[in-house]
């Protein structure tokens, strides 16, 4: 580092001296427990989906680098994280072409078109998920995906069961079982404990901000609790919502993505809370069984707006800093 120039950029700052490579490596490490558990639970096909997803995400990034004649950026592992997250959100039975097209949408449309690292207004993985869920809803039906599997627990996707059979179905899924991965779902979203360990690791290392995670979970508990209090027969308890579907994956890994989440404390709290609030609304009132993908896309969308809540700039007469 013989860079003698002192470059001052605009506030606010959030830099801990790390590189992108380190950041993304830590993300991968944090995702490992949940991903490994998914492979153990769903077998070799899950491993196939995850490896294909990571490989193709990096491949698309390489192709885009070549097409746009820019430096190779796959070394910073960002596309690997996007690919791994995408794979973890799929059922283990997803066909190969879903993975190939999905990673294309994630990396090229979700990230590269907006200018690559740091330019994406939405979490790239969620862009891919939303577009694919719209095109091929059949493959995201977890009940249908695992019909040929044998499990020693209730082989029903918890959120879909509650949606179509009423809140009573939530009793089939004890919280302990959900935490230990005793549920049917996406490869990387079933093992609640692993996701929490990974997420806490990232927070402790300073890679994700606790404000977003905590307010996100608080949004779910408070909104879900209010629903459950007003009519316990119709709406399951907030703890059920907290540990089922994509909730934990969304709270710890998706909502906290750096370029699509706010930088200041109050906006972060609003951002996270809004995400949890929207998830519960979509699950309890909306048409979707799991609204996590759309809820987080929605808070990504309002992020620039709430990011305007910021401290006044120092100095005199500066009104529009």
């Amino acid at each position: 580092m013989n860079n003698t120039k002192l470059i001052v950029s605009h506030a606010p700052f959030w830099h801990d001296g790390d590189s992108l490579f380190q950041l993304n490596l830590n993300y991968l490490i944090a995702l490992l427990p949940a991903a490994l558990f998914g492979i153990l639970q769903f077998g070799a096909t899950a491993l196939g989906v995850l490896t294909l997803s990571v490989a193709f995400a990096m491949l698309w990034e390489t192709i885009m680098n070549l097409v746009s004649r820019q430096d190779m950026t796959i070394g910073n592992l960002e596309s690997a994280v996007i690919g791994l997250l995408f794979g973890m959100m799929l059922p283990a039975t997803a066909p190969w072409w879903i993975v190939v097209i999905g990673t294309f949408v994630c990396v090229v449309i979700g990230k590269y078109i907006f200018g690559g690292t740091g330019g994406n207004p939405f979490h790239p993985t969620l862009v891919g998920m939303a577009i694919l869920m719209m095109s091929w809803p059949v493959y995201f039906d977890f009940d249908a995906a695992y019909v040929s599997y044998e499990f020693d627990f209730t082989a029903l996707a918890p959120l879909a069961a509650v949606k179509f059979q009423g809140a009573g179905a939530a009793e089939l899924f004890p919280v302990g079982g959900l935490l230990a991965g005793q549920e049917v779902g996406a490869i990387g979203a079933v093992f609640g404990l692993g996701l929490i360990i990974g997420g806490v690791y990232l927070i402790l290392r300073g890679y994700t901000r606790w404000e977003i995670v905590v307010s996100f979970l608080a949004g779910i508990i408070i909104t879900g609790g209010l629903f459950s209090l007003t009519n316990p027969d119709a709406y399951p308890s907030p703890l059920f919502h907290l540990f089922s579907g994509y909730t934990l994956l969304g709270a710890f890994f998706l909502a906290t993505e750096n370029s699509s989440s706010p930088v200041n404390r109050i906006p972060m709290l609003i951002y996270g809370f809004l995400g949890g609030f929207m998830i519960i609304l979509m699950r309890n009132i909306g048409a979707y069984a799991d609204g996590t993908v759309l809820a987080i896309l929605l808070i990504n969308l309002v992020n620039p707006l709430i990011d305007n809540i910021r401290p006044k700039a120092l100095g005199k007469g500066v009104t529009n800093a």
Binding site: I101, I109, I113, I131, L132, M134, S135, W136
Partner: peptide, 19 residues
């Protein structure tokens, strides 16, 4: 064969035109 239904929807038009 299963079509990529997103392209027929309105947001798909923007993506197709942009690409």
């Amino acid at each position: 064969f299963q079509p990529f239904g997103f392209m027929i929807e309105a947001p798909g038009a923007f993506v197709a035109l942009g690409l």
